[in-house]
């Protein structure tokens, strides 16, 4: 197990070095800060998406779910579409990025808060019920966005299209610092619950039997997960299936229930996928596609494979 982690860490570091130094041609002053920002954005979102998916899957006892289906991605798109539709793309670009970030993140956290409140009001609610409602809301947001999308002028649509897919290219340093602070605080809070994760993955009855205040812990974990997802989505845009991809590869690779290995392993996988993907996009595809499109594609295909394979874990 430890060797696997070491190998993963080494590959991640090697990829990062390659990414930072490839084809610099002496322009260190320009290249380093610009790639450094990209890298920071990748590290943050990669880690956050990995952790939130692993935690989410342990809570739901299910390997084919991801927090993206809480409807947050679609909500983000609705906010962005509405922004472009109502204010126009030029105003949208001029609109302070920080304001947009904070506004979107807050709305998303608020939405999931309200969703949880409504769903957990009645005792004994099935968590799948919560997810289904989230997903339905997501479909509704999508209908609303596509209604506006068609009304938008094709030129403005291009601006919007840029936001539909996660991109690490234009993340400003202020935003990076801001989201790092928020995430660090959230993670500090999350640390209190880490020790419960192994037991929670056994299932509700077992967890209660082993003395976990189940409802209390799960609600807090869900809030943490939605803060994570909101921040990463607001920072770079939606990458729906990255979490699904890396969490499942992580489970396959480590074959353990121990989150002490699963979480770092999945974080590393996620970083490898993103740095590698970004490298491919820049050097091989020459920016004709985006990382999130590639990863969603790969993740999606892998997921269908998982579903069709006979499997006991869900």
């Amino acid at each position: 197990m430890k060797t696997k982690l070491t190998i993963l860490s080494l590959s991640a570091v090697a990829l990062i070095v390659l990414f930072m130094t490839y084809h610099v041609m002496g322009n260190w002053d320009y290249v380093l800060p610009s790639r450094g920002r990209k890298l920071a954005a990748i590290l943050i979102t990669g880690a956050v998406i990995a952790v939130s998916t692993v935690v989410f899957q342990s809570i739901t006892n299910n390997r084919i779910l991801t927090p993206s289906i809480l409807g947050l991605d679609s909500l983000y798109m609705l906010i962005q579409t509405f922004g472009v539709y109502a204010l126009g793309s030029s105003n949208m670009t001029f609109m302070n990025k920080n304001v947009n970030f904070l506004f979107s993140a807050c709305i998303m956290v608020l939405f999931s808060g309200v969703l949880y409140k409504l769903m957990f009001r009645r005792e004994g609610q099935n968590i799948y019920f919560l997810l289904l409602v989230g997903l339905i809301m997501g479909t509704m947001f999508q209908s609303a966005s596509s209604f506006m999308e068609v009304l938008i002028d094709p030129n403005e649509f291009l601006i919007l299209q840029g936001k539909m897919f996660a991109s690490f290219n234009n993340v400003s340093s202020d935003l990076l610092i801001l989201s790092t602070v928020v995430l660090a605080l959230t993670t500090l809070y999350f640390m209190r619950f880490v020790k419960y994760l192994d037991v929670i993955s056994l299932g509700k009855d077992e967890a209660i039997n082993l003395g976990i205040n189940y409802d209390y812990v799960v609600k807090r974990l869900l809030v943490i997960v939605s803060i994570y997802v909101s921040i990463s989505t607001a920072l770079v845009g939606p990458i729906t299936f990255l979490g699904l991809l890396v969490a499942n590869v992580g489970h396959q690779l480590f074959r353990t229930y121990k989150h002490a290995y699963l979480i770092p392993g999945t974080i590393l996988l996620s970083i490898i996928a993103l740095v590698g993907g970004q490298f491919l996009v820049e050097r091989v595809f020459g920016f004709t596609t985006t990382v999130s499109v590639i990863i969603n594609f790969a993740g999606g295909v892998y997921f269908v494979y998982l579903l069709l394979k006979e499997n006991k874990s869900w």
Binding site: L65, I69, L132, F241, T289, N296, F297, F303, L307
Partner: peptide
Amino acid sequence: LVGLMFGNIVGSITTFFAYK
């Protein structure tokens, strides 16, 4: 839930080609 997820995935494959 699985069906909607499956739909989303097919959707993301569509997006992949549409984007290109």
